[in-house]
C-alpha cells in the first residue's frame, strides 16, 4: 500500500519495536507529533504492527484523549468537575463556544487555532472554575475573562502572521 512520508512515525515505531503492548504510548507519541491521529498514519501503524485497522480504530475511539480530527494550536480545557461546575464553569464554556463559533459537536475552529475540550477534573479545585490553555492554568475565571484571553491570543496570532 502506498503511504506518504512516514519518517516521523518510523522513528516512533523504531523506539518501541513491534511490541503490541506499547500501542497506547505509540499512539500518544504520534498524537503529540501530529496533534491528532491521521487516518493514513493509523493504517500505516496497523500494517507495521500487525494490528487490524478496526482494532486500532477501537483503541483510538475508546480513549477520550485521542482525536481522529485535527486539533487546534491552542487546546483549551475547561474543567467541569464538581467544584468547577458549581462555580459556574458551564457559562465559561458557553461563552468560549460562542466566541469561537463552536458547538457541542464541533470542537475545533476552521483555522485550526483553537480546540475546546471539557475535562472532568484538573485537580485544581481551589481555583475553581479553572481552564487551561496548552498547559497554562487560568484560575477563578469568568466568561468575560475567558473571552478576553482568547481575543488576546487571536491578536498575537494575527500580529505574528503579518
Amino acid at each position: 500500500m502506498p503511504y506518504g512520508n512516514m519518517e516521523k512515525v518510523d522513528r516512533i515505531l523504531e523506539s518501541y519495536g513491534d511490541d503490541q503492548s506499547h500501542i497506547i504510548t505509540i499512539l500518544q507519541k504520534i498524537q503529540s507529533e501530529y496533534r491528532y491521529l491521521p487516518m493514513d498514519v493509523l493504517e500505516y501503524v496497523s500494517d507495521k504492527m500487525e494490528i487490524s485497522p478496526a482494532k486500532l480504530f477501537g483503541i483510538a475511539t475508546f480513549y477520550e484523549n485521542f482525536s481522529l480530527d485535527p486539533k487546534g494550536k491552542y487546546i483549551i480545557k475547561i474543567c467541569d468537575g464538581t467544584a468547577c461546575h458549581v462555580k459556574k464553569s458551564i457559562p465559561v464554556l458557553e461563552a468560549l463556544r460562542k466566541e469561537l463559533s463552536l458547538t457541542e459537536n464541533k470542537h475545533t475552529t476552521d483555522d485550526l487555532l483553537f480546540t475546546i475540550e471539557t475535562v472532568s477534573c484538573l485537580g485544581a479545585c481551589g481555583l475553581a472554575p479553572v481552564i487551561t490553555i496548552n498547559d497554562k492554568v487560568y484560575g477563578k475565571i469568568s466568561p468575560e475573562m475567558a473571552v478576553e484571553i482568547i481575543r488576546k491570543l487571536k491578536e498575537e496570532e494575527t500580529n505574528a502572521n503579518s
Binding site: 493509523l42 487490524s52 478496526a54 482494532k55 480504530f57 475511539t61 475508546f62
Partner: peptide
C-alpha cells in the same frame, strides 16, 4: 484472521464497527 470488525467508542456509545466507521 481478517479483523474487519472491532469494538469502537465507549460506554453507551460503544458499537461494533469496521475501521474508521
Amino acid at each position: 484472521g481478517v479483523g474487519a470488525l472491532s469494538f469502537a467508542y465507549r460506554g453507551s456509545h460503544m458499537k461494533v464497527a469496521p475501521a474508521f466507521d
